[in-house]
Design a binder for these strands. Structure first.
Lengths: 207, 207
DNA sequence: TAGATTGTTAATCGATTAACAATC
DNA sequence: TAGATTGTTAATCGATTAACAATC
């Protein structure tokens, strides 16, 4: 496998294509970049470039084989095998994430939660047990978990992240609205609702 | 007010600056772009350009007045006055969003929820009542609500969005993983967890 | 005054879009 | 074959970074 350097915008569009392709009737074998582009309001060249980054190649006059394209995108995203994940900070958001059973499709399986609130410890949420935060590093090592999800308040996020990294976590999905300072080898992806809201309310203001 | 065209990346960074500035000790009156840039690992020029887009101007040799900068960013984002919002699709995610009391800081106030599940209707979540979806358009009109939040499954998102627009909703915060097709006057901002996960798992795959 | 920091103009970088030969 | 659609190279667009005169 050669190391294709794919741009972040491309990476963000691939899951959209994937869902779109999965929704296509099984009767349809081929789809053209022009068709996809039209449905997304993208440029056809951009669609072809995006798809090319997965290694899938199309056929002139026909387009892309829908099923192979689905497989190629899933493989490229790493969604063809599932990573176990721990989530720290068991509030409403974590409960929602733990209750959402479709992450497995996206290569993620939340296997347990962690908190410091004694009233939560020992409980199960959607069959995922909640442990005390003290047990995090030991369990990360024992279970070889590579992904950590942070849903604690902003003030605790940095120390939780450091604890995760110490235990051996390699990638962090961070829902806290701060910039984590971690060794560069650790993969961090931030979900920022406030940032998304900024775009919305700013546009709304000018209406 | 002149129409400053500000880039999306800039718009996404402004909330980060805002939170950062609010965390600064009240003893500190001025902060330099170099200091901010350093803490975010950004380029100082970029920080100055971002801040300039809010209309705030700094002082040579001193930097930016922290408090006026906070005010300027809040005003620019439209977070100095609050928009009421309705949320449709009362599952775990909606419950989390309705339970989160800090959106008011971001100019958003969720005032009611809507669903079609009879067992939910009439209930209150964090003092926000749940109504039947049938009542949506009437209530949008009566209460002049401009913002709608979509947390229904993907298959229902388009029709819910159309219902919102019909009622008079002007901006939609969409958590469903599809591309809504709406008149261009309607502001749409998508929150896509799968997209964020794509970036994470793809990086993880190459580790 | 000297020099730190600003705002702005110019250069660079990267992503999107246009053009087009190759091909099925 | 003719022509629709591909993959790729070149042009454009927009955002980031570098350079630097103005200024407090």
């Amino acid at each position: 496998m050669d190391i294709r350097k794919v741009s972040k915008p491309t990476l963000r569009r691939l899951p959209l294509y994937l869902r779109y392709l999965k929704n296509i009737s099984p009767d349809v074998q081929y789809i053209s970049s022009a068709q996809i582009a039209n449905d997304f309001n993208y440029d056809p060249t951009q669609v072809r470039k995006d798809l090319a980054s997965t290694g899938e190649i199309g056929t002139a006059r026909k387009g892309f084989d829908v099923q192979s394209l689905i497989n190629a995108i899933e493989k490229f995203l790493g969604w063809d095998n599932v990573n176990d994940a721990f989530i720290v900070g068991i509030g409403n958001l974590a409960t929602a994430l733990m209750g959402f059973n479709h992450f497995v499709q996206y290569g993620l399986n939340i296997v347990a939660g962690f908190d410091v609130d004694q009233s939560l410890i020992g409980k199960s949420i959607n069959n995922k047990k909640v442990f005390h935060l003290e047990e995090l590093t030991a369990l990360v090592q024992r279970m070889h978990v590579k992904v950590g999800i942070i849903t604690v308040p902003a003030d605790y996020a940095q120390s939780v992240a450091e604890l995760m990294v110490e235990g051996g976590i390699k990638a962090i999905w961070n829902f806290a609205p701060i910039e984590l300072k971690l060794p560069s080898r650790v993969v961090v992806e931030n979900v920022r609702l406030s940032t998304s809201l900024a775009v919305l309310t700013n546009k709304l203001k000018n209406l």
